[in-house]
């Protein structure tokens, strides 16, 4: 825990706004994909209300895309649930890392907060926790902004039909790597400490992505990266 001078001057409203501002680039990048997801769901025969139910109850973009592509009638419940579980396993690692930064949140927030932990929100609040103590208002400012816009975007997409152009052709798919590259810079602690982590994560992620279908490459790459950190860190240098 490292309380800083900025804690005294920042009100919850200001923190909430700071969180919402930090997530804004990700929200803007997400809009075309939300619209496309809604459009594809409608093409599969899902109603706007069902889209809203999925976006609010599941709230996980990549697993929702996969689910919609797998959807049939009657819904293959077990296959859809298993696919969601496998794609979202990375959340376990992300949550374990974030837990130490939300230990001072009230208990109900530590139960409700993870419900809204999307990749983009997680990356933004981890980055914030590097600079200052993470507040609940900042966390929920980022999380609820993304959540709300995801609901609006995906439901709107079910009405827009085929009006949307291909987001990959327009380059929108690369907005997410760009955001994650920018955020990753903040975690750079020198070539000796962070270099092996990033190299191992990149090599294993690319290799697994090439041969294993689905989202396993994220979990495999992340595990390789943290293994590299443990191997290359001298024992006496271990400090929180």
């Amino acid at each position: 825990m490292q309380p800083t001078a900025s804690d005294a001057s920042s009100t919850p409203a200001r923190e909430f706004l700071a969180g919402a501002t930090a997530i804004a680039p990700a929200v803007i990048a997400m809009v075309p994909f939300a619209l496309i997801l809604g459009q594809q769901a409608a093409a599969k025969g899902l109603s706007p209300l069902e889209m809203l139910a999925m976006s609010s109850i599941v709230f996980a973009g990549s697993s929702q895309f996969l689910a919609v592509s797998l959807w049939s009638f009657p819904a293959p419940v077990a296959a859809l649930a298993l696919a969601a579980l496998l794609i979202n396993l990375r959340h376990v690692l992300m949550g374990a890392s974030l837990a130490g930064k939300v230990g001072h949140f009230p208990k109900w927030m530590r139960v409700v907060g993870p419900y809204f932990m999307a990749d983009e929100t997680w990356a933004v609040v981890e980055r914030r926790a590097l600079a200052t103590r993470l507040t609940p208002a900042y966390y929920f400012g980022a999380a609820l902004t993304l959540f709300g816009c995801w609901q609006i975007g995906t439901v709107l997409g079910t009405f827009l039909g085929a009006l949307i152009d291909d987001p990959v052709r327009l380059g929108f798919d690369f907005a997410f790597p760009a955001i994650f590259i920018s955020l990753a810079l903040g975690f750079w602690k020198g070539a000796r400490q962070t270099g092996p982590v990033m190299v191992a994560a990149a090599v294993v992620a690319v290799a697994v992505h090439a041969v294993v279908p689905g989202a396993w490459y994220v979990v495999a790459g992340a595990l390789a990266g943290i293994a590299a950190a443990v191997i290359t860190t001298p024992h006496e240098a271990v400090t929180p």
Partner: peptide, 10 residues
């Protein structure tokens, strides 16, 4: 090491 590892892997 987890945040940079996950971001790099993604």
């Amino acid at each position: 090491a987890l945040p940079p590892a996950v971001l790099t892997a993604v």
